[in-house]
Amino acid sequence: MATQAQLSGPFALGTFADADGAPFPGLVAGDLVLDLGQAPEAGNPSTTRDLLERWEETLPALHRLAQDGDRPWRPLEGLRTLPPVEPRQLLQSGANYRQHVVDLAVAHRSPDDTRTVEQARADVAAMMDRRAAEDQPYMFIGLPSSITGPYDDVVLPAWCTKPDWELELVAVIGRPAYRVGPEEALAHVAAYTIANDLTARELVFRKDMPEIGTDWLRCKNAPGFTPLGPYLVPAAFVTDPSDLQVTLKLNGETMQDESTKDMIFDVARMVSYASQTTRLLPGDLVLTGSPAGNGMHWGRLLRDGDVMDGTVTGLGAQRTRCVAEGR
């Protein structure tokens, strides 16, 4: 499990279950958890989303509670860590890391492309610069039912032949946001967390209807395809979301290790873009895309028994094991 040494700031929020299986919102400080459902100062919330609904008034109370050693703190060990929040909406982003897009574009060049690899990389990089300056993010919607806990097993469906990993920084909405500009968008982000946005690569494009394009429903939304957490780290503790390291290890071997500096569109531009169409609500998640180093890049996709360790600077760590359906 994650420890306080891996977290930015003095505390974080999570959702936990005790031995009886009853979930509760918890304040995490070091290796201890305080049941916020029993804290009148925090409004006796039933869920972390209740806290996000009143984030501006809740945050000062959380600061005070984190410093109160007389409370009935419980050891983190022995509690089950559940997904830290249940969002109403899940907004996902594609093709948002410069190096990742350059790698993919060069790898999938037409056989009759006469450019050298260096020339192709330079051309695609220039295109990415123009896109960052003039274009808009590429976003789509996911289903909250795909979310699972940060330490839960991930079941690989029998129909999925090319399961892949995509570790991502996630912005968690606090204040509702509708048609906000980039300059004000971060004021609507309450916290950050981690997601592994798994993908069934063989189903990204519809072979029966190529003119339709991508099929995000089938390739992204199987149960458990979005391990989330472990915690919600308040945005006030994250100095710069554009300077965090995103790292995924597969069976101990580093596969992804990139800074969010490589994002084409930063968190503010993505939250702003999503809010132009939909009203973002407290607890909603904005996934910011995944850096280079996916399984398709390495020619090594997920298998039964694989263990993924994912970290983002200051946000803790998640560990999930892949289990073939039916095993």
Rank of each mutant, 00 (worst) to 15 (best):
M1T: 05
A2G: 00
A2K: 02
T3D: 15
Q4C: 02
L7F: 13
G9Q: 12
G9T: 11
G9F: 10
L13A: 06
L13M: 01
L13S: 07
T15C: 13
A17N: 05
A17G: 09
A22H: 09
A22Y: 02
A22P: 00
P23I: 12
P23M: 10
P25I: 14
L27I: 10
D31L: 11
L32I: 00
L32K: 15
V33G: 09
Q38L: 08
E41H: 04
E41F: 02
A42F: 05
S46H: 14
R49M: 05
L52H: 05
E57C: 01
L59Y: 01
P60M: 08
H63F: 09
R64N: 07
R64C: 04
R71D: 06
R71F: 04
P72G: 09
R74I: 07
E77S: 13
G78S: 11
T81H: 01
P83W: 07
L91N: 01
G94V: 15
Q99E: 15
Q99C: 00
V101K: 01
D103Q: 15
V106K: 07
R109Q: 10
R109I: 02
R115G: 09
R115E: 09
T116P: 00
Q119W: 02
Q119T: 07
A120W: 05
D129M: 01
Y138K: 08
L143T: 06
G149A: 07
P150K: 04
Y151C: 07
V154P: 00
L156E: 05
W159N: 13
W159L: 14
E166R: 05
E168I: 09
E168P: 03
E168Q: 03
A171F: 12
I173Q: 06
A177T: 09
V180R: 13
V180S: 05
G181W: 02
P182W: 05
L186A: 02
A187T: 08
A187G: 11
A187P: 00
H188M: 14
A190K: 04
A190M: 12
A191P: 03
I194D: 10
L198Q: 06
R201L: 14
E202L: 02
L203M: 11
I212L: 15
G213V: 00
D215N: 15
W216I: 14
W216H: 15
N221Q: 08
A222H: 06
A222R: 04
F225E: 03
P227M: 09
P230K: 04
P234K: 09
A235K: 04
T239Y: 00
Q245H: 10
T247A: 02
L248Y: 11
G252K: 04
G252V: 12
T254I: 15
T254N: 07
E258A: 14
K261G: 01
K261T: 12
M263A: 12
I264K: 09
V267Y: 00
Y273E: 14
A274T: 14
A274H: 13
A274P: 04
S275C: 08
T277C: 10
T277W: 13
T278R: 10
T278A: 10
P282I: 05
P282S: 05
G283P: 12
T288V: 08
S290L: 03
R303L: 15
V307S: 11
M308K: 02
M308V: 12
G310W: 03
T311V: 14
T311G: 01
T311Q: 12
V312C: 08
T313W: 08
T313N: 08
G314M: 13
R319M: 07
